[in-house]
């Protein structure tokens, strides 16, 4: 009896082990987004055992107590508050043709941020929220907004605000291999060393998270996209995720891609998938 129980237990553990150690894959035949997500969570559980997975939506403040203290003080009067209000006003201001943003989005644009970015099968590309904000404008005869800051970040901030606490739910549809290719492209970008400094995103935000880089401490990769757009103290204003991407890319001493390039949209797709199950908590404030 004991032997049988032992064998069954062993088999169960083996199965669990196989599931846990599923290869996350490095090409289109083997890449497995769910295995990537689980492996990333396991990495951070081991790296920072005291931090709760759900708390990673707060970035570096999940793992560095002194930074968290300062951030919590800052959040008492959130610096993005006026931007949310202005974003709401802009969102509800009709275009010249009488229509508005609410006409362009599902559910009138309310409580949808956590589903972005998504794979658009008809267009064969990753669509981001900011991209659709500008498409909405252009389809209604308005000029597109600048991608990185200003009104687009305010409208995006308001829309993110209406999605607060909703679980991130990024899909990589199995019936379109191009979606998986976009995911893989984003994954590859994240882990690829580039630029004169020979740095990958992962060098700072995976291996280097909570390790001092000159005067700063890079936040962890897990939860990195949940709270955008962000009011960054360094900027003294609101900015979009792609503004930060461009800055990071430049910081590696690469000639950076432009906001909303296919490369950056695929990167956002990969990163956002990694956050599935965590809650959307944008807009945020950061150092």
């Amino acid at each position: 009896m004991k032997i049988k129980t032992g064998l069954m237990l062993g088999a169960a553990l083996l199965t669990a082990g196989i599931v846990q150690a599923a290869d996350s894959g490095f090409d289109l035949e083997t890449v497995n987004p769910e295995a990537d997500r689980k492996a990333l969570q396991a990495y951070f559980k081991e790296r920072f055992p005291k931090a709760e997975i759900e708390d990673y939506v707060n970035g570096i403040y999940a793992v560095d107590a002194p930074s968290r203290e300062q951030w919590e003080a800052l959040e008492e009067f959130p610096p993005y508050e006026f931007d949310i209000e202005e974003g709401e006003r802009l969102f509800n201001t009709p275009f010249a043709n009488g229509k508005g943003y609410a006409d362009c989005f599902e559910n009138g644009g309310i409580g949808i941020r956590h589903n972005y970015p998504y794979w658009n099968k008809e267009q064969g590309t990753v669509k981001t929220l900011e991209m659709e904000i500008n498409e909405c404008r252009e389809n209604n005869g308005e000029k597109p907004l600048r991608w990185s800051k200003g009104d687009i970040s305010r409208i995006s901030a308001y829309m993110a605000w209406t999605s607060r606490d909703m679980p991130i739910n990024i899909q990589v549809p199995k019936d379109d291999p191009r979606a998986l290719a976009a995911y893989l492209d984003g994954k590859k970008f994240y882990y690829t060393k580039r630029g004169q400094l020979n740095l990958s995103c992962a060098n700072c935000h995976l291996q280097g998270s909570n390790i001092r880089v000159r005067a700063d401490i890079p936040g962890p990769m897990l939860g990195q996209t949940t709270h955008w757009p962000v009011f960054r103290s360094k900027w003294g204003e609101m900015g979009t995720l792609h503004r930060r991407y461009k800055g990071c890319h430049r910081d590696s001493r690469s000639r950076p891609d432009q906001p909303q390039s296919e490369t950056f949209r695929n990167l956002e797709y990969f990163q956002s998938y990694m956050n599935n199950g965590l809650v959307s908590n944008g807009p945020g404030s950061r150092k």
Binding site: D23, F26, D36
Partner: peptide
């Protein structure tokens, strides 16, 4: 990078 990018991916 083409040959080695995967080396730092958590498994």
């Amino acid at each position: 990078a083409q040959a080695n990018w995967h080396l730092s991916v958590p498994e």
